Computed example of a mutant assay.
Amino acid sequence: MTMTKLTAFALTTALTAGVAFADGHEDRTGWPESFTVGTASQGGTYFAYGSGWANLVADELGLTGGGEVTGGPMQNMALVHTGEAQFGMTTMGPAAESLAGTNPIAPGLQMTNACAMFPMYQTPFSVTALSSSGIASVADIPDGARIGFGPAGSTSDTYFPRMMEELGVNFERRNGGWTDLGGQLQDGLLDLIAFAAGIPIPAVSQLEVQTDVNIIEFTAEEQAQIMAAFPVSEFNIPANTYSTLEADARSVSMWNFAIANCDLPASFVYAVVDTVMSDNDRMVSIHRAAQSTTPDNWDKNGVMMWHPGAAQWFTEHAGAEIPADMIHGDM
């Protein structure tokens, strides 16, 4: 595969109408007056993180924009592909399934008009229970446990039930927004919540304030078993993430990327990426998970085509070498 700098690609016709002027003035031809970022349910990291960068971009670029509550990564791929949302957030697993046409929202539809925009953070998979339950490990989970897996179609709901089955857990599946599930756990209506979300998860932080919880880590053997069966990698949740943790908690994770409708003007997406990626301190002030929202993580996308405007930014500012056949419109 030939590797190419997008500086060469920028000279082709695909970007001639969408690059920034040499004197620093933006060409806003075709820019929308407003935009929407598909996030997930309230109480989860996607909503807090996505609403935050949407507001940041809106303020910086003088546009109207904001986050929208959705069902999470699977629905976001569909919304961005169809153009119902200009931007969204997804994880690599749901992205791959959507591109392959196995997204349960629209089976058979290959959602190829959702393009990679910038790296966000890793999504750790973790389990939380009330300390009073006595559940402190996966082995402690009782037969038929009522487990909340987040919104239907979310990354957690897509993969965590399969992971639990892989580990031999027999459970009753429940769905809902993270805030609602946190309330159900506290009220004794659930035995556990299986979270897949950037850390710290607002719902878990809130639970810690109100009651004693156990954040359950995987054993080394369980971690290896899950990594062998699913598109995830090794991850440790740092001890300082939650007041409950006394040491790093063994987990697995999946990368998240912001996505853009592939038909958006290159200059618009370039400006959005520049706003988000140029000042990590501002992003971290929105959510601590943004510590990983840095240019050097551009290479964590091996699934989606890049939006030309995003590819241009990472080539110019991160030294990215993006294959031409991974840039939308350069086929």
Rank of each mutant, 00 (worst) to 15 (best):
T36P: 10
T36W: 12
V37P: 00
V37E: 01
A40M: 03
Q42S: 11
Q42P: 04
G44E: 12
G44R: 07
T45A: 15
T45Q: 11
T45S: 15
G50P: 10
S51A: 06
S51T: 15
S51I: 02
G52V: 09
G52K: 08
W53M: 13
N55F: 08
L56T: 04
V57T: 12
V57C: 03
D59K: 15
E60H: 10
G62L: 12
L63D: 13
T64F: 04
G65P: 03
G66L: 12
G67I: 11
G67W: 06
G67V: 11
V69D: 01
T70E: 05
T70V: 11
N76V: 02
M77Q: 15
L79E: 02
L79Q: 03
V80T: 00
T82L: 02
T82H: 00
A85Q: 12
A85Y: 09
Q86V: 02
Q86M: 06
F87R: 02
F87Q: 00
M89V: 15
T91V: 05
T91Q: 07
M92G: 03
G93Y: 04
G93A: 08
P94C: 04
A95E: 03
A96G: 05
S98G: 07
S98V: 02
L99I: 14
L99R: 05
L99F: 09
A100C: 08
A100Y: 10
G101K: 09
T102A: 14
P104R: 01
P104Q: 01
P104F: 01
P104D: 00
L109V: 15
L109Q: 13
L109I: 13
Q110Y: 08
Q110E: 15
Q110A: 14
A114H: 01
A116Q: 05
A116L: 04
M117W: 07
P119R: 04
M120H: 10
Y121L: 09
Y121C: 06
F125T: 05
S126P: 05
V127C: 03
T128W: 08
A129Y: 09
A129S: 14
S131M: 11
G134S: 04
I135A: 11
I135F: 13
I135K: 07
S137Y: 04
V138R: 06
V138N: 07
V138L: 12
A139W: 13
D140N: 09
D140E: 11
P142Q: 14
P142D: 13
P142W: 13
G144S: 13
G144R: 13
G144N: 12
A145K: 01
A145C: 05
P151A: 10
A152N: 04
A152H: 08
A152R: 06
D157M: 02
T158E: 03
P161H: 02
R162I: 09
M163G: 10
M164E: 11
E165K: 15
L167C: 14
